[in-house]
Design a protein around this nucleic acid. Structure first.
Lengths: 220, 220
DNA sequence: ACTCAATCTGAAGACAACCTGAAGCGATTC
DNA sequence: GAATCGCTTCAGGTTGTCTTCAGATTGAGT
Protein backbone atom coordinates (compact mmCIF):
# COMPACT_ATOMS: atom_id res chain seq x y z
CA UNK A 1 0.00 0.00 0.00
CA UNK A 2 1.70 3.17 -1.19
CA UNK A 3 0.97 6.63 0.20
CA UNK A 4 2.28 9.92 -1.16
CA UNK A 5 2.57 12.71 1.42
CA UNK A 6 2.78 16.25 0.04
CA UNK A 7 3.81 18.46 2.96
CA UNK A 8 6.35 21.28 3.02
CA UNK A 9 6.76 21.68 6.74
CA UNK A 10 9.58 19.30 7.48
CA UNK A 11 8.70 18.29 11.03
CA UNK A 12 5.08 17.49 10.28
CA UNK A 13 6.05 15.67 7.11
CA UNK A 14 8.50 13.41 8.88
CA UNK A 15 5.99 12.75 11.62
CA UNK A 16 3.37 11.67 9.09
CA UNK A 17 5.79 9.53 7.19
CA UNK A 18 6.95 7.76 10.32
CA UNK A 19 3.40 7.12 11.46
CA UNK A 20 2.55 5.62 8.11
CA UNK A 21 5.64 3.45 7.97
CA UNK A 22 4.85 2.10 11.42
CA UNK A 23 1.52 0.97 10.06
CA UNK A 24 3.29 -0.88 7.23
CA UNK A 25 2.49 1.61 4.53
CA UNK A 26 5.13 2.55 1.99
CA UNK A 27 5.28 6.33 2.41
CA UNK A 28 6.92 8.83 0.06
CA UNK A 29 7.40 12.38 1.27
CA UNK A 30 7.68 15.33 -1.13
CA UNK A 31 7.71 19.07 -0.39
CA UNK A 32 6.59 20.90 -3.52
CA UNK A 33 3.92 20.76 -6.20
CA UNK A 34 6.48 19.89 -8.80
CA UNK A 35 7.95 17.01 -6.83
CA UNK A 36 4.46 15.72 -6.20
CA UNK A 37 3.49 15.71 -9.87
CA UNK A 38 6.75 14.04 -10.80
CA UNK A 39 6.32 11.32 -8.21
CA UNK A 40 2.74 10.73 -9.32
CA UNK A 41 3.73 10.49 -12.96
CA UNK A 42 6.39 7.97 -12.14
CA UNK A 43 4.53 5.45 -10.01
CA UNK A 44 0.92 4.96 -9.04
CA UNK A 45 -0.07 5.54 -5.41
CA UNK A 46 -2.99 4.13 -3.48
CA UNK A 47 -3.65 7.28 -1.46
CA UNK A 48 -2.34 10.86 -1.58
CA UNK A 49 -2.20 13.13 1.47
CA UNK A 50 -2.06 16.73 0.30
CA UNK A 51 -1.29 19.86 2.31
CA UNK A 52 -2.80 22.99 0.78
CA UNK A 53 -0.10 25.56 1.49
CA UNK A 54 2.96 24.69 -0.53
CA UNK A 55 6.01 26.81 -1.37
CA UNK A 56 5.56 26.73 -5.15
CA UNK A 57 1.79 26.93 -5.49
CA UNK A 58 -1.60 26.19 -4.05
CA UNK A 59 -2.58 22.61 -3.33
CA UNK A 60 -6.07 23.18 -4.68
CA UNK A 61 -4.74 24.21 -8.07
CA UNK A 62 -2.50 21.19 -8.08
CA UNK A 63 -5.50 18.98 -7.33
CA UNK A 64 -7.57 20.55 -10.09
CA UNK A 65 -4.70 20.00 -12.51
CA UNK A 66 -4.47 16.35 -11.56
CA UNK A 67 -8.16 15.71 -11.93
CA UNK A 68 -8.25 17.42 -15.30
CA UNK A 69 -5.44 15.29 -16.59
CA UNK A 70 -7.16 12.13 -15.46
CA UNK A 71 -5.45 11.17 -12.21
CA UNK A 72 -8.13 9.56 -10.10
CA UNK A 73 -6.17 8.44 -7.05
CA UNK A 74 -7.97 9.20 -3.79
CA UNK A 75 -6.77 12.47 -2.30
CA UNK A 76 -7.06 13.48 1.34
CA UNK A 77 -6.63 17.19 1.92
CA UNK A 78 -4.84 18.40 5.02
CA UNK A 79 -5.37 22.00 5.85
CA UNK A 80 -5.17 24.69 8.48
CA UNK A 81 -7.90 26.59 6.68
CA UNK A 82 -11.05 25.09 8.06
CA UNK A 83 -13.73 27.44 6.86
CA UNK A 84 -16.75 25.79 5.32
CA UNK A 85 -15.98 27.39 1.97
CA UNK A 86 -12.52 25.86 1.91
CA UNK A 87 -13.87 22.43 2.66
CA UNK A 88 -16.52 22.71 -0.04
CA UNK A 89 -14.03 23.96 -2.56
CA UNK A 90 -11.65 21.11 -1.84
CA UNK A 91 -14.29 18.43 -2.08
CA UNK A 92 -15.73 19.81 -5.27
CA UNK A 93 -12.33 19.99 -6.91
CA UNK A 94 -12.06 16.27 -6.54
CA UNK A 95 -10.74 15.66 -3.05
CA UNK A 96 -12.04 12.53 -1.39
CA UNK A 97 -11.70 13.74 2.15
CA UNK A 98 -10.81 16.88 4.05
CA UNK A 99 -9.09 16.82 7.42
CA UNK A 100 -8.64 20.13 9.25
CA UNK A 101 -5.54 20.78 11.34
CA UNK A 102 -4.94 20.01 14.07
CA UNK A 103 -5.78 16.33 13.74
CA UNK A 104 -4.78 13.14 15.48
CA UNK A 105 -2.56 10.64 13.76
CA UNK A 106 -5.10 7.98 14.61
CA UNK A 107 -7.84 9.71 12.69
CA UNK A 108 -5.61 10.33 9.70
CA UNK A 109 -4.76 6.64 9.61
CA UNK A 110 -8.41 5.64 9.87
CA UNK A 111 -9.31 7.90 6.98
CA UNK A 112 -6.45 6.57 4.88
CA UNK A 113 -7.60 3.04 5.59
CA UNK A 114 -11.09 4.03 4.49
CA UNK A 115 -9.81 5.49 1.23
CA UNK A 116 -7.44 2.65 0.53
CA UNK A 117 -10.01 -0.03 1.22
CA UNK A 118 -12.29 1.32 -1.44
CA UNK A 119 -9.55 1.62 -4.01
CA UNK A 120 -7.98 -1.76 -3.86
CA UNK A 121 -11.08 -3.94 -4.34
CA UNK A 122 -9.81 -5.71 -1.25
CA UNK A 123 -7.11 -8.16 -2.10
CA UNK A 124 -8.37 -11.00 0.00
CA UNK A 125 -6.42 -14.16 0.53
CA UNK A 126 -9.47 -16.28 1.21
CA UNK A 127 -12.47 -16.35 -1.08
CA UNK A 128 -15.68 -17.65 0.39
CA UNK A 129 -18.99 -18.18 -1.33
CA UNK A 130 -21.86 -20.64 -1.44
CA UNK A 131 -20.25 -22.92 1.11
CA UNK A 132 -17.00 -23.02 -0.81
CA UNK A 133 -13.84 -21.74 0.86
CA UNK A 134 -10.84 -21.15 -1.37
CA UNK A 135 -7.53 -20.21 0.20
CA UNK A 136 -5.44 -18.42 -2.41
CA UNK A 137 -2.23 -18.68 -0.42
CA UNK A 138 -2.49 -22.28 0.69
CA UNK A 139 -4.25 -23.30 -2.51
CA UNK A 140 -6.72 -25.36 -0.54
CA UNK A 141 -10.45 -25.78 -0.99
CA UNK A 142 -13.11 -26.63 1.56
CA UNK A 143 -16.77 -27.31 0.88
CA UNK A 144 -19.01 -26.94 3.91
CA UNK A 145 -15.92 -27.31 6.09
CA UNK A 146 -14.70 -30.49 4.48
CA UNK A 147 -11.45 -30.44 2.49
CA UNK A 148 -11.65 -31.26 -1.20
CA UNK A 149 -8.71 -32.31 -3.38
CA UNK A 150 -8.50 -30.53 -6.70
CA UNK A 151 -5.94 -30.90 -9.46
CA UNK A 152 -4.23 -27.72 -10.64
CA UNK A 153 -6.53 -27.31 -13.62
CA UNK A 154 -9.60 -27.85 -11.51
CA UNK A 155 -8.30 -25.35 -8.97
CA UNK A 156 -7.57 -22.72 -11.61
CA UNK A 157 -11.05 -23.15 -12.98
CA UNK A 158 -12.68 -22.81 -9.56
CA UNK A 159 -10.62 -19.73 -8.77
CA UNK A 160 -11.94 -17.95 -11.83
CA UNK A 161 -15.48 -18.71 -10.78
CA UNK A 162 -14.93 -17.67 -7.17
CA UNK A 163 -13.49 -14.35 -8.22
CA UNK A 164 -16.47 -13.72 -10.47
CA UNK A 165 -19.32 -15.43 -8.67
CA UNK A 166 -22.72 -14.38 -9.89
CA UNK A 167 -21.43 -13.43 -13.29
CA UNK A 168 -22.00 -15.49 -16.37
CA UNK A 169 -18.57 -16.26 -17.75
CA UNK A 170 -18.28 -16.96 -21.47
CA UNK A 171 -16.54 -20.18 -22.42
CA UNK A 172 -13.83 -18.37 -24.37
CA UNK A 173 -13.03 -16.15 -21.40
CA UNK A 174 -12.49 -19.20 -19.22
CA UNK A 175 -10.47 -21.19 -21.73
CA UNK A 176 -8.32 -18.16 -22.49
CA UNK A 177 -7.33 -17.95 -18.87
CA UNK A 178 -6.71 -21.62 -18.30
CA UNK A 179 -5.30 -22.94 -21.54
CA UNK A 180 -3.52 -19.77 -22.62
CA UNK A 181 -3.89 -18.84 -26.25
CA UNK A 182 -3.05 -22.15 -27.79
CA UNK A 183 -6.50 -23.49 -27.17
CA UNK A 184 -8.10 -25.55 -29.86
CA UNK A 185 -11.71 -24.46 -30.08
CA UNK A 186 -12.88 -27.83 -31.31
CA UNK A 187 -12.01 -29.63 -28.13
CA UNK A 188 -14.37 -30.12 -25.23
CA UNK A 189 -11.85 -29.82 -22.43
CA UNK A 190 -13.87 -27.21 -20.62
CA UNK A 191 -16.91 -29.46 -20.58
CA UNK A 192 -14.85 -32.28 -19.14
CA UNK A 193 -13.47 -30.10 -16.37
CA UNK A 194 -16.80 -28.57 -15.53
CA UNK A 195 -18.12 -32.06 -15.18
CA UNK A 196 -15.33 -32.94 -12.77
CA UNK A 197 -15.69 -29.78 -10.71
CA UNK A 198 -19.37 -30.45 -10.32
CA UNK A 199 -18.75 -34.01 -9.29
CA UNK A 200 -16.33 -32.89 -6.60
CA UNK A 201 -18.14 -29.81 -5.30
CA UNK A 202 -21.85 -30.45 -5.66
CA UNK A 203 -21.89 -33.11 -2.99
CA UNK A 204 -25.19 -32.26 -1.35
CA UNK A 205 -27.17 -32.47 -4.54
CA UNK A 206 -27.92 -28.85 -5.25
CA UNK A 207 -26.40 -27.20 -8.28
CA UNK A 208 -23.64 -24.64 -7.79
CA UNK A 209 -22.78 -24.05 -11.41
CA UNK A 210 -25.43 -23.03 -13.85
CA UNK A 211 -24.97 -23.70 -17.56
CA UNK A 212 -25.96 -20.90 -19.90
CA UNK A 213 -26.39 -22.52 -23.24
CA UNK A 214 -24.45 -20.87 -26.03
CA UNK A 215 -22.61 -18.59 -23.62
CA UNK A 216 -20.86 -20.19 -20.70
CA UNK A 217 -21.24 -20.94 -17.01
CA UNK A 218 -22.18 -19.15 -13.82
CA UNK A 219 -21.29 -19.84 -10.20
CA UNK A 220 -24.49 -18.99 -8.39
CA UNK B 1 -28.09 9.38 -9.05
CA UNK B 2 -29.84 7.57 -6.21
CA UNK B 3 -29.33 8.33 -2.53
CA UNK B 4 -30.68 6.37 0.41
CA UNK B 5 -31.22 8.38 3.58
CA UNK B 6 -31.52 6.41 6.82
CA UNK B 7 -32.76 8.83 9.45
CA UNK B 8 -35.41 8.26 12.11
CA UNK B 9 -36.01 11.84 13.15
CA UNK B 10 -38.76 12.87 10.81
CA UNK B 11 -38.03 16.58 10.49
CA UNK B 12 -34.35 16.15 9.76
CA UNK B 13 -35.07 13.29 7.37
CA UNK B 14 -37.52 15.32 5.33
CA UNK B 15 -35.15 18.25 5.31
CA UNK B 16 -32.36 16.07 3.92
CA UNK B 17 -34.61 14.48 1.35
CA UNK B 18 -35.83 17.82 0.13
CA UNK B 19 -32.32 19.21 -0.13
CA UNK B 20 -31.26 16.20 -2.18
CA UNK B 21 -34.25 16.34 -4.45
CA UNK B 22 -33.60 20.00 -5.11
CA UNK B 23 -30.16 19.04 -6.33
CA UNK B 24 -31.74 16.53 -8.72
CA UNK B 25 -30.88 13.42 -6.75
CA UNK B 26 -33.42 10.65 -6.41
CA UNK B 27 -33.73 10.37 -2.64
CA UNK B 28 -35.34 7.57 -0.67
CA UNK B 29 -36.02 8.11 3.01
CA UNK B 30 -36.30 5.21 5.48
CA UNK B 31 -36.51 5.26 9.26
CA UNK B 32 -35.32 1.90 10.54
CA UNK B 33 -32.51 -0.60 10.04
CA UNK B 34 -34.91 -3.10 8.61
CA UNK B 35 -36.34 -0.71 6.08
CA UNK B 36 -32.83 0.28 5.07
CA UNK B 37 -31.70 -3.28 4.47
CA UNK B 38 -34.84 -4.03 2.51
CA UNK B 39 -34.42 -1.00 0.30
CA UNK B 40 -30.79 -1.83 -0.31
CA UNK B 41 -31.58 -5.41 -1.23
CA UNK B 42 -34.14 -4.28 -3.73
CA UNK B 43 -32.23 -1.69 -5.70
CA UNK B 44 -28.66 -0.47 -5.68
CA UNK B 45 -27.94 3.07 -4.50
CA UNK B 46 -25.10 5.35 -5.42
CA UNK B 47 -24.66 6.79 -1.96
CA UNK B 48 -26.10 5.98 1.47
CA UNK B 49 -26.49 8.56 4.23
CA UNK B 50 -26.70 6.75 7.55
CA UNK B 51 -27.69 8.13 10.92
CA UNK B 52 -26.24 6.13 13.80
CA UNK B 53 -29.06 6.23 16.33
CA UNK B 54 -32.01 4.31 14.96
CA UNK B 55 -35.11 2.98 16.72
CA UNK B 56 -34.45 -0.70 15.98
CA UNK B 57 -30.69 -0.91 16.35
CA UNK B 58 -27.33 0.75 16.01
CA UNK B 59 -26.25 2.14 12.66
CA UNK B 60 -22.73 0.84 13.17
CA UNK B 61 -23.92 -2.74 13.51
CA UNK B 62 -26.03 -2.29 10.43
CA UNK B 63 -22.99 -1.04 8.55
CA UNK B 64 -20.87 -3.94 9.69
CA UNK B 65 -23.58 -6.35 8.59
CA UNK B 66 -23.74 -4.75 5.14
CA UNK B 67 -20.01 -4.86 4.60
CA UNK B 68 -19.81 -8.49 5.66
CA UNK B 69 -22.49 -9.46 3.21
CA UNK B 70 -20.72 -7.72 0.38
CA UNK B 71 -22.52 -4.41 -0.05
CA UNK B 72 -19.90 -1.94 -1.12
CA UNK B 73 -21.94 1.18 -1.72
CA UNK B 74 -20.33 4.32 -0.31
CA UNK B 75 -21.72 5.16 3.13
CA UNK B 76 -21.65 8.57 4.77
CA UNK B 77 -22.25 8.46 8.51
CA UNK B 78 -24.22 11.22 10.16
CA UNK B 79 -23.88 11.40 13.88
CA UNK B 80 -24.30 13.48 16.98
CA UNK B 81 -21.56 11.47 18.61
CA UNK B 82 -18.42 13.23 17.55
CA UNK B 83 -15.80 11.69 19.77
CA UNK B 84 -12.65 10.59 18.03
CA UNK B 85 -13.33 6.95 18.94
CA UNK B 86 -16.73 7.04 17.27
CA UNK B 87 -15.28 8.47 14.11
CA UNK B 88 -12.51 5.89 14.02
CA UNK B 89 -14.91 3.07 14.67
CA UNK B 90 -17.20 4.19 11.89
CA UNK B 91 -14.45 4.59 9.35
CA UNK B 92 -12.90 1.23 10.18
CA UNK B 93 -16.22 -0.54 9.91
CA UNK B 94 -16.37 0.51 6.31
CA UNK B 95 -17.84 4.00 6.30
CA UNK B 96 -16.50 6.25 3.59
CA UNK B 97 -17.06 9.51 5.38
CA UNK B 98 -18.17 10.79 8.77
CA UNK B 99 -20.03 14.02 9.25
CA UNK B 100 -20.71 15.23 12.80
CA UNK B 101 -23.95 17.03 13.66
CA UNK B 102 -24.63 19.84 13.37
CA UNK B 103 -23.64 20.19 9.74
CA UNK B 104 -24.59 22.44 6.87
CA UNK B 105 -26.61 21.11 3.98
CA UNK B 106 -24.00 22.54 1.66
CA UNK B 107 -21.26 20.45 3.16
CA UNK B 108 -23.36 17.30 3.10
CA UNK B 109 -24.05 17.84 -0.58
CA UNK B 110 -20.38 18.43 -1.31
CA UNK B 111 -19.44 15.20 0.43
CA UNK B 112 -22.14 13.27 -1.40
CA UNK B 113 -20.86 14.63 -4.68
CA UNK B 114 -17.38 13.53 -3.74
CA UNK B 115 -18.54 10.01 -2.94
CA UNK B 116 -20.75 9.74 -6.00
CA UNK B 117 -18.06 10.96 -8.35
CA UNK B 118 -15.75 8.16 -7.34
CA UNK B 119 -18.44 5.56 -7.76
CA UNK B 120 -19.69 6.67 -11.12
CA UNK B 121 -16.66 5.63 -13.12
CA UNK B 122 -17.66 1.99 -12.97
CA UNK B 123 -21.37 2.44 -13.37
CA UNK B 124 -21.79 2.13 -17.11
CA UNK B 125 -21.92 -1.63 -17.04
CA UNK B 126 -25.33 -1.85 -15.43
CA UNK B 127 -28.49 -0.75 -17.15
CA UNK B 128 -31.48 -0.16 -14.93
CA UNK B 129 -35.02 0.71 -15.81
CA UNK B 130 -38.57 -0.11 -14.77
CA UNK B 131 -37.45 -2.53 -12.10
CA UNK B 132 -35.24 -4.40 -14.54
CA UNK B 133 -31.53 -4.58 -13.82
CA UNK B 134 -29.30 -5.74 -16.63
CA UNK B 135 -25.62 -6.29 -15.90
CA UNK B 136 -23.69 -6.08 -19.14
CA UNK B 137 -20.53 -7.55 -17.68
CA UNK B 138 -22.09 -10.37 -15.73
CA UNK B 139 -24.74 -10.90 -18.38
CA UNK B 140 -27.30 -11.24 -15.60
CA UNK B 141 -30.84 -9.92 -15.32
CA UNK B 142 -32.81 -9.11 -12.20
CA UNK B 143 -36.43 -8.05 -11.98
CA UNK B 144 -37.35 -6.33 -8.72
CA UNK B 145 -34.26 -7.87 -7.17
CA UNK B 146 -35.01 -11.41 -8.25
CA UNK B 147 -32.73 -13.13 -10.77
CA UNK B 148 -34.25 -14.19 -14.07
CA UNK B 149 -32.77 -16.73 -16.46
CA UNK B 150 -32.76 -15.71 -20.09
CA UNK B 151 -31.53 -17.57 -23.14
CA UNK B 152 -29.05 -15.80 -25.38
CA UNK B 153 -31.72 -14.65 -27.84
CA UNK B 154 -33.95 -13.38 -25.08
CA UNK B 155 -31.04 -11.56 -23.49
CA UNK B 156 -30.00 -9.91 -26.75
CA UNK B 157 -33.55 -8.75 -27.27
CA UNK B 158 -33.84 -7.29 -23.78
CA UNK B 159 -30.51 -5.52 -24.12
CA UNK B 160 -31.73 -3.67 -27.20
CA UNK B 161 -34.81 -2.51 -25.33
CA UNK B 162 -32.88 -1.48 -22.23
CA UNK B 163 -30.47 0.60 -24.26
CA UNK B 164 -33.36 2.31 -25.99
CA UNK B 165 -36.05 2.39 -23.34
CA UNK B 166 -38.83 4.81 -24.07
CA UNK B 167 -38.22 4.68 -27.79
CA UNK B 168 -40.47 2.89 -30.21
CA UNK B 169 -38.34 0.31 -31.96
CA UNK B 170 -39.48 -0.84 -35.41
CA UNK B 171 -39.68 -4.58 -35.93
CA UNK B 172 -37.12 -4.54 -38.72
CA UNK B 173 -34.62 -2.67 -36.57
CA UNK B 174 -34.86 -5.32 -33.89
CA UNK B 175 -34.76 -8.32 -36.20
CA UNK B 176 -31.80 -6.87 -38.08
CA UNK B 177 -29.81 -6.72 -34.87
CA UNK B 178 -30.73 -10.13 -33.57
CA UNK B 179 -31.07 -12.32 -36.63
CA UNK B 180 -28.54 -10.42 -38.71
CA UNK B 181 -29.64 -9.78 -42.26
CA UNK B 182 -30.69 -13.29 -43.10
CA UNK B 183 -34.07 -12.79 -41.49
CA UNK B 184 -37.07 -14.13 -43.30
CA UNK B 185 -39.71 -11.43 -43.01
CA UNK B 186 -42.54 -13.94 -43.25
CA UNK B 187 -41.69 -15.64 -40.01
CA UNK B 188 -43.03 -14.59 -36.65
CA UNK B 189 -39.94 -15.25 -34.58
CA UNK B 190 -39.98 -11.78 -33.07
CA UNK B 191 -43.53 -12.27 -31.89
CA UNK B 192 -42.56 -15.55 -30.29
CA UNK B 193 -39.65 -14.02 -28.44
CA UNK B 194 -41.57 -10.99 -27.31
CA UNK B 195 -44.10 -13.36 -25.88
CA UNK B 196 -41.39 -15.22 -23.98
CA UNK B 197 -39.77 -12.05 -22.67
CA UNK B 198 -43.10 -10.84 -21.39
CA UNK B 199 -43.79 -14.13 -19.72
CA UNK B 200 -40.47 -14.01 -17.91
CA UNK B 201 -40.35 -10.32 -17.01
CA UNK B 202 -43.91 -9.17 -16.46
CA UNK B 203 -44.36 -11.22 -13.33
CA UNK B 204 -46.38 -8.73 -11.32
CA UNK B 205 -49.04 -8.27 -13.96
CA UNK B 206 -48.31 -4.83 -15.28
CA UNK B 207 -47.13 -4.44 -18.83
CA UNK B 208 -43.53 -3.48 -19.53
CA UNK B 209 -43.56 -3.74 -23.30
CA UNK B 210 -46.07 -1.83 -25.33
CA UNK B 211 -46.89 -3.03 -28.83
CA UNK B 212 -47.23 -0.35 -31.48
CA UNK B 213 -49.34 -1.93 -34.11
CA UNK B 214 -47.81 -1.86 -37.56
CA UNK B 215 -44.52 -0.48 -36.26
CA UNK B 216 -42.87 -2.35 -33.43
CA UNK B 217 -42.47 -2.35 -29.66
CA UNK B 218 -41.56 0.01 -26.85
CA UNK B 219 -40.10 -0.62 -23.42
CA UNK B 220 -42.00 1.81 -21.22
C1' DA C 1 16.79 -44.35 -16.60
C1' DC C 2 12.71 -46.85 -15.35
C1' DT C 3 8.21 -47.56 -13.27
C1' DC C 4 4.01 -46.29 -11.71
C1' DA C 5 0.36 -43.28 -10.62
C1' DA C 6 -1.98 -39.20 -11.38
C1' DT C 7 -3.53 -36.02 -14.49
C1' DC C 8 -4.60 -34.32 -18.96
C1' DT C 9 -6.63 -34.79 -23.50
C1' DG C 10 -9.57 -36.19 -27.46
C1' DA C 11 -13.51 -38.74 -29.16
C1' DA C 12 -18.22 -40.53 -29.24
C1' DG C 13 -22.91 -41.39 -27.96
C1' DA C 14 -26.71 -39.82 -25.14
C1' DC C 15 -29.27 -36.20 -23.69
C1' DA C 16 -31.55 -31.88 -23.10
C1' DA C 17 -32.28 -27.10 -24.23
C1' DC C 18 -33.13 -23.97 -27.49
C1' DC C 19 -34.61 -22.38 -31.97
C1' DT C 20 -37.83 -22.31 -35.55
C1' DG C 21 -42.01 -22.53 -38.41
C1' DA C 22 -46.80 -23.33 -38.54
C1' DA C 23 -51.47 -23.02 -37.03
C1' DG C 24 -55.30 -21.37 -34.38
C1' DC C 25 -57.10 -17.81 -31.76
C1' DG C 26 -57.71 -12.99 -30.13
C1' DA C 27 -57.42 -8.05 -30.72
C1' DT C 28 -57.53 -3.85 -33.28
C1' DT C 29 -58.54 -0.94 -37.12
C1' DC C 30 -61.24 0.78 -40.91
C1' DG D 1 -67.99 -7.20 -39.59
C1' DA D 2 -64.16 -8.18 -42.43
C1' DA D 3 -59.38 -7.95 -42.77
C1' DT D 4 -55.11 -7.42 -40.89
C1' DC D 5 -51.87 -7.81 -37.43
C1' DG D 6 -50.25 -9.72 -33.28
C1' DC D 7 -50.33 -13.39 -29.48
C1' DT D 8 -49.74 -17.94 -27.86
C1' DT D 9 -48.92 -22.79 -28.11
C1' DC D 10 -46.88 -26.86 -29.85
C1' DA D 11 -43.90 -30.20 -32.01
C1' DG D 12 -39.97 -31.29 -34.96
C1' DG D 13 -35.23 -30.32 -35.86
C1' DT D 14 -30.95 -28.59 -34.66
C1' DT D 15 -27.18 -27.68 -31.84
C1' DG D 16 -24.65 -27.29 -27.65
C1' DT D 17 -23.53 -29.71 -23.56
C1' DC D 18 -22.86 -33.89 -20.40
C1' DT D 19 -20.75 -38.03 -19.38
C1' DT D 20 -17.75 -41.80 -19.98
C1' DC D 21 -13.70 -44.00 -21.43
C1' DA D 22 -9.27 -45.00 -23.24
C1' DG D 23 -4.89 -43.40 -24.75
C1' DA D 24 -1.24 -39.85 -24.07
C1' DT D 25 1.46 -37.16 -21.14
C1' DT D 26 3.55 -35.60 -17.11
C1' DG D 27 5.91 -35.94 -12.75
C1' DA D 28 7.56 -38.25 -8.59
C1' DG D 29 9.94 -41.86 -6.46
C1' DT D 30 13.14 -45.76 -6.78
Amino acid sequence: MKVLVVEDERRLGEFLKQGLVECRYTATLVRTCKEASDALAETPFDVIVLDLSLPDGDGLNLLRQWRESGFNEPVLILSARDSLEDRLKGLDLGADDYLPKPFSMEELLARIRSLARRQSTVKLTVLEHAGIRLDLVGRTVHVNGKPVDLTSREYALLEIFMQNHGRILPRTLITDKIWASSYDVDTNLLDVYMSRLRAKLETNGKALFKTVRGVGYQLI
